[in-house]
Structures are given as structure tokens and as C-alpha cells.
């Protein structure tokens, strides 16, 4: 609306008021924008207000960090696999050593053993059975694969066992053994009994001497007596 030219003071006031309003409007826009920007900056957690270069830089650093982490993951996995396989190997070695220990313990007579086998009873009413005959019998049993042998539930027969005679008594490892002789042997019970009663074997020999031999096959024979071993005094194991 055109101002009436006749009233310059009033018009100048109006124009001044209008431009003052305009200035106020601009300042209002400024305040609004500033507050909005501050709020955006404060709430900017999702990178939406970031410049492209900054975002690219962020992405680059993130991807290189991810690469480094992946390399680390690879290394750690390899280390873990190595540790696992080495501990597996160690476990296998331990298992092997344990089973060998069991075999050796049975062979050296330091542990009691049970299993199928035979119980041989030898009577000797005429006191004529000598240590040699018993040794023959033991040899026959060993030949038939006896794994653990004991006599009269008191003497374990091992590699170093020796048979002697003193004052008409049979001594095994220095321990006097009197008839009737009771031999427990663990092994294949059928093979062991065959080894005793085959023609010309232990049974025949004892009967020729006036004694009797009875063989009893059993599914569970207990060999309970133990042999104590001393550390070797003279011999040393050689390498290899």
C-alpha cells in the first residue's frame, strides 16, 4: 500500500518499523538456525551431519582397523591350533606311556593282575618233585603265553625269578615253597592247560615222579602276590 506523501514523519516511522520487523525476522531465523545446528551437533551420533571426506576417512580407518584385527584373529587361531595339536600329541604320548607302564607293571610283577587263565595244583606225596621240574613247568607256561604267574599265592614269577633247592626244600626267589604247589597263570586258559597236559610235558613228568597234576581253567584268575624291584645297580640303559 503506497504511503501518503503528505505525511513524511508517519511514513518514515512505518518504514522504519517495517525494516525493524525485517531485522527481527532475520535475527529470529538466525536464532532458530543456530539452535537447530547446536542440537544437531549434540545429537550427532549417527554421522548423518558429517562431511563426505570425514566419512571416507572414518571408513578407511575402520576398514584398516578391521584388516588388522582379522590378521590378529588369524594369528591367534593358528596359535590356538598349534597349542591344541601339541596338547593332543602330549595326551597321546601320556596315553601310550600309561599303557606301556601297565604292561611293564604286569611283567615286572609290581601290580596285582586278574584275567582268564589256569590254576594248576601239583601234589607231591613222595617229596620227589624238584625245582627243575617246577622250572620246566613254568617255562612251558611262559612258552604258552602266560603273562603273570604266581606260586602258592606267595611268590610272583618274573624275569629274575630263580629256583633253588636247600635241605630238600624248593626255594623260589629264596622263599621256601612246600607242596602242594599251586600255580596261578594268566593267559589264554585253553593254551595254558594244553601246555601242561601235552604228552611228555609237566603232567607226565610229575606223574612219573609219583605226584598228581590237576589243571583248572577259569575265566578269572587272580595273581595277587607282588614282586618288589630294586633300581638296577650295575646296568644302565643305552640310548636308542
Amino acid at each position: 500500500m503506497p504511503e501518503p506523501p503528505t505525511s513524511p514523519p508517519e511514513g518514515s516511522t512505518k518504514r522504519s518499523l517495517r525494516s525493524q520487523l525485517f531485522v527481527g525476522l532475520l535475527l529470529a531465523v538466525l536464532g532458530f538456525a543456530a539452535v537447530a545446528q547446536m542440537r544437531l551437533t549434540r545429537d550427532d551420533t549417527d554421522y548423518s551431519g558429517q562431511r563426505r571426506e570425514v566419512l571416507i576417512e572414518l571408513l578407511d580407518s575402520l576398514s584398516s582397523a578391521a584388516e588388522r584385527t582379522l590378521v590378529q584373529v588369524d594369528e591367534l587361531e593358528r596359535t590356538r591350533d598349534e597349542l591344541l595339536s601339541s596338547s593332543e600329541r602330549r595326551q597321546i604320548a601320556i596315553d601310550e606311556a600309561e599303557s606301556r607302564l601297565q604292561v611293564l607293571e604286569v611283567l615286572t610283577g609290581t601290580v596285582a593282575a586278574t584275567g582268564p587263565g589256569v590254576t594248576i595244583t601239583i601234589t607231591d606225596p613222595e617229596d620227589s618233585v624238584a625245582a627243575a621240574s617246577l622250572l620246566n613247568g613254568i617255562e612251558e607256561l611262559r612258552d604258552a603265553g602266560a603273562e603273570a604267574i604266581e606260586i602258592n599265592d606267595t611268590v610272583r614269577v618274573v624275569a629274575s625269578t630263580f629256583f633253588t633247592e636247600q635241605d630238600g626244600e624248593v626255594r623260589i626267589d629264596g622263599v621256601a615253597v612246600r607242596p602242594p604247589y599251586l600255580i596261578d597263570a594268566i593267559g589264554s586258559s585253553h593254551t595254558l592247560s594244553e601246555a601242561v597236559i601235552f604228552p611228555g610235558g609237566l603232567a607226565d613228568e610229575i606223574e612219573r615222579l609219583g605226584g598228581t597234576v590237576s589243571v583248572e581253567e577259569a575265566n578269572l584268575v587272580e595273581v595277587g602276590s607282588l614282586h618288589s624291584i630294586d633300581a638296577p645297580e650295575y646296568s644302565q640303559p643305552t640310548e636308542g
Binding site: L21, V23, G24, L26, L27, A28, G31, F32, A33, A34
Partner: peptide, 15 residues
């Protein structure tokens, strides 16, 4: 005066 009012109004509106 109007300018100051405008600024305050804008800040208030933004908030």
C-alpha cells in the same frame, strides 16, 4: 528492541 525480541523468539522456537 524488535531485533532482540526476534532473536529470543527464534531461539525459543528452535528449542
Amino acid at each position: 528492541m524488535i531485533a532482540a525480541y526476534g532473536l529470543a523468539l527464534g531461539v525459543l522456537a528452535g528449542l
